[in-house]
């Protein structure tokens, strides 16, 4: 149930983000989810795409600093308090969430949220035990 996320280092100068999306577009790679964390000097672009290994190779060839990071994709009820409910489940277990961000698309009536946590296996077990759906990689890539 682990999803591969692309993490790309970008300097804060114009055209770099555009270049990444261009490369992916030209190669028919679809972006499923995206977030950017930035400082004054640089940013880290995080992407969920339908073909992560291929995208990784392409960006690498273009000299981007890119890595594949293991994350999980979690279904969250698309209503007020939906995300809070999921976070509450994890709270007692000391699961440290490094960051999270939402997918653009929904799966059925639920929102999809990417979680980056330290102990993936533990988080997956807690969530599924509590009736929260964690998507498999293939489910995410074929959305």
């Amino acid at each position: 149930m682990i999803v591969k996320q692309l993490s790309v280092f970008l300097e804060n100068k114009s055209g770099r983000l555009a270049r990444v999306t261009e490369i992916l577009g030209e190669n028919n790679i679809n972006i499923r989810a995206l977030s950017i964390a930035d400082t004054t000097d640089f940013g880290i672009l995080r992407l969920i795409v339908n073909k992560p290994n291929e995208a990784y190779k392409l960006l690498k060839e273009e000299q981007f600093m890119v890595s594949l990071t293991d994350v999980i994709a979690v279904e969250v009820p698309d209503r007020p308090g939906g995300l809070a409910g999921v976070l509450k489940i994890l709270e007692p277990y000391n699961i440290n969430i490094e960051y999270l961000y939402a997918f653009m698309e929904k799966s059925s009536n639920n929102a999809l949220v990417v979680f980056r946590v330290e102990d993936l296996e533990k988080a997956i077990k807690i969530l599924t035990d509590n009736g929260v759906k964690v998507l498999t990689g293939n489910e995410v890539y074929s959305l």
């Binding site: 993490s7 280092f9 964390a37 400082t39 640089f42 880290i44 890595s67």
Partner: peptide
């Protein structure tokens, strides 16, 4: 230049 071994997907670690 950032090198592979020091890259992280977390801003905090790069800082």
């Amino acid at each position: 230049e950032l090198s592979e071994q020091f890259f992280s997907d977390e801003v905090k670690k790069l800082e």
